[in-house]
Design a protein around this nucleic acid. Structure first.
Lengths: 151, 151
DNA sequence: GTAGAACCTCAAGTTCACTTGAAGTCAAGC
DNA sequence: GCTTGACTTCAAGTGAACTTGAGGTTCTAC
């Protein structure tokens, strides 16, 4: 009975696939030691770390942001409940904002449904307050551009 | 003064880039006639269609879903305000669900912050009610898997 | 000691919603 | 007539978060 876990065990217990675990390691999100034969061996506290990652993703963080957050954890000792609480507290405003954006979208939609306009200054579904600017190339998962004077 | 718009005019008025407009056409989301020289000419009502697409994306629809929705519009006549209202009414439950998922995440997070657990049955941040199953390959923008017994 | 499951690496593929670039054509004003 | 800017097509690239596959090694159990 040793104290470490194989990648398969971690995958089963965390619900995160082995390939994703290897990917996370390549991205510096988790760490594993190796067996004599070169296979990954995980400390038990990796599970909490993975839990953090999972929930952070649900909150909408990118893995880059997750890495930054994790990098503020102490290196020397196993993080405590307090450490994790500190990190997750930072999500609150973010969640609040997401919720309020969706709620205002819903409310505006209700008033737009009456007229079927969908498209005007009067409607303003177009101009969400969050000025999420140029996102570069690639897909846009949330559009935040402005587009006035349509129709 | 003709009645149609060039791609540049549509881009300016809709806030959607020319390349995106061409892409939308290739995906069957919008339609354009052609000038004698082969350049795109848009009817004025394309702007409302684009408005619909934009807002639908903000609600979280994929372009595939947008195409399905648009395909229920009448082919023979220009869609009326009523037509658009019918389509956007379908978004309401979707928005409601998104909001409630985020709100329960926020609430659970609040109670978890107290203990820093982030990871347990007691916490349940892991098991969101929406059973969004195997999403196939590619990135996961919203995780909905279950992973019990972590830690 | 060996079968078979589980692991390893590395490169390439996947999805979505576009963008970028190359190489050429059209349209408007002077 | 000519320049210039706006347009055309088509192929390939982008970013995020992984997955898949090929080809090989290790671990465990009998």
């Amino acid at each position: 009975m040793d104290e470490t876990l194989s990648i398969g065990e971690v995958a089963t217990r965390s619900g995160i696939s082995s390939s994703a675990l290897r990917f996370y390691e390549s991205q510096g999100l988790v760490h594993a030691t190796r067996s004599d034969g070169g296979q990954r061996r995980y400390e038990r506290d990796v599970l909490r770390r993975l839990a953090f990652i999972r929930v952070a993703q649900r909150v909408g963080l990118t893995l880059d942001e997750v890495r930054s957050a994790l990098s503020t954890l102490p290196d020397q000792r196993t993080p405590t409940a307090k450490d994790w609480a500190r990190l997750s507290r930072a999500w609150r405003p973010r969640l609040d904002e997401q919720i309020s954006v969706l709620m205002s979208l819903r409310d505006q939609l209700s008033s737009c449904i009456g007229c079927g306009c969908l498209s005007l200054r009067a409607c303003s579904l177009y101009n969400p307050e969050d000025g999420a600017a140029a996102l570069g190339t690639g897909p846009r998962y949330l559009l935040g551009d402005s587009a006035d004077d349509v129709i």
